[in-house]
Amino acid sequence: MDLDVFVAAHRAEWDRLDTLLRRRRRLTGPETDELVTLYQRTATHLSLVRSAGPDPQLTGRLTQLVARARSTVTGARRASWGDVTGFLTRGFPAAVYRSRHWWVPTALVSLAVAAVLSWWIGTHPQVRATIAAPSQLRELTRPGGEYEAYYSSHPAASFAAQVWTNNAEATALCLVLGAFLCVPVLWIVFQNMLNVAVGIGLMASAGRLDTFLGLLLPHGLLELTAVFVAAGTGLRLGWTVIDPGPRTRRGALAEEGRAAIGMALGLALVLLVSGAVEAFVTPSGLPTWARIGIGVVAEAAFLTYVYVLGGRAVREGDTGDLAAKERNAALPVAA
């Protein structure tokens, strides 16, 4: 296609569409019909220009025209509290439930790896010697040592904010880097499990495993679950690049990517809860059984939320993606 000839043939239509858009609040009935027709034609022109060859200036102009016209024709949509409620009661739990075949195995394998590493560190003095000097290990594991002091080293509110930021960053990385064929996600999860295993192994070797679990479990159950959900979602996104199934690769990535973005927002709220538990409950003077009980209740509440609300939403057709009316129409493709 000769772009110069194409532009000459259709410039008048684009200019007319631009004029109508500038006067959109004062259009007559026939002018409104004309705007819709020109919008449809210009959208077709944009598709042709994109497929014919790169012309950034022309593509940019037509993209802007089409976007403005679409906003005028369909009307701008504003978020409402109903959207928030729908996301929290349907979209987010549906996305987590739908990804359960990825994050549940991720959790089981990760915990098995952590258990093996913990045993290896706890039962092999030569391994512990590579982690730190004996005097440093004693400082880490003694009563009131660094492992215990960590949870009360800062004011609770600022500590909660710090913990939430660090954990939200880790989950976001799992979700975003999943598109890189899964490898970065596996590394992030391994690093998290190694950190847990080092703590368990060192405290077990010092005969203080019960103390460490009393510090880890109140917030760790929910926190690690959020990390596993993010990792499983990231792995699913990465596998979509490899095998999109019956969908086009672009369409599959768009669908899974939108769900992953929603997942990031929902998990940020989950991590806010676990961060609050870590800052206010873990270092508190409550008995160990009470602190662990709070963690178990928080974990059970989250799993119930996912499997009850999410399962119901999925059975009703919700996938965690945008509503059909908010997505671009999908064109049929050859299998």
Score class of each variant (00 low, 15 high):
residue 93 P to C: 08
residue 59 T to R: 08
residue 240 T to N: 09
residue 322 L to W: 10
residue 111 L to M: 13
residue 152 S to D: 10
residue 81 W to T: 03
residue 107 A to W: 02
residue 267 L to F: 02
residue 277 V to Q: 01
residue 181 L to R: 14
residue 110 S to D: 08
residue 35 L to M: 03
residue 129 A to E: 11
residue 322 L to P: 02
residue 2 D to Y: 07
residue 109 V to I: 15
residue 316 E to F: 05
residue 277 V to A: 03
residue 334 A to R: 15
residue 73 V to T: 07
residue 314 V to Q: 15
residue 308 V to P: 14
residue 105 P to A: 03
residue 275 G to F: 00
residue 191 Q to F: 09
residue 236 R to A: 09
residue 273 V to I: 11
residue 326 E to C: 04
residue 109 V to S: 09
residue 278 E to H: 03
residue 146 E to K: 08
residue 107 A to Q: 03
residue 156 A to C: 11
residue 280 F to I: 02
residue 270 V to Y: 00
residue 312 R to P: 02
residue 203 M to I: 04
residue 252 A to G: 10
residue 139 E to F: 06
residue 209 L to M: 02
residue 322 L to N: 02
residue 44 T to G: 13
residue 106 T to V: 12
residue 83 D to L: 11
residue 21 L to Y: 13
residue 40 Q to V: 04
residue 233 T to M: 03
residue 102 W to E: 03
residue 158 S to D: 07
residue 305 Y to H: 15
residue 46 L to S: 13
residue 197 A to D: 01
residue 16 R to D: 14
residue 325 K to S: 12
residue 174 C to W: 03
residue 182 C to W: 12
residue 6 F to K: 06
residue 326 E to D: 06
residue 307 Y to S: 15
residue 277 V to H: 01
residue 127 V to Q: 11
residue 179 A to L: 15
residue 210 D to L: 07
residue 179 A to P: 08
residue 182 C to T: 14
residue 191 Q to L: 08
residue 290 A to G: 06
residue 63 T to R: 11
residue 219 H to G: 07
residue 269 L to G: 05
residue 288 T to C: 10
residue 1 M to R: 07
residue 3 L to P: 00
residue 313 A to G: 13
residue 98 R to N: 14
residue 172 A to G: 13
residue 325 K to E: 13
residue 321 D to N: 15
residue 83 D to Y: 13
residue 272 L to H: 04
residue 50 R to P: 05
residue 282 T to C: 03
residue 182 C to S: 14
residue 211 T to F: 03
residue 8 A to V: 07
residue 183 V to Q: 04
residue 55 D to M: 03
residue 72 T to A: 06
residue 57 Q to Y: 07
residue 308 V to I: 15
residue 210 D to R: 11
residue 328 N to A: 13
residue 295 G to M: 09
residue 319 T to L: 10
residue 166 N to Q: 11
residue 129 A to S: 12
residue 157 A to R: 11
residue 271 L to S: 06
residue 145 G to N: 05
residue 215 L to N: 00
residue 60 G to D: 07
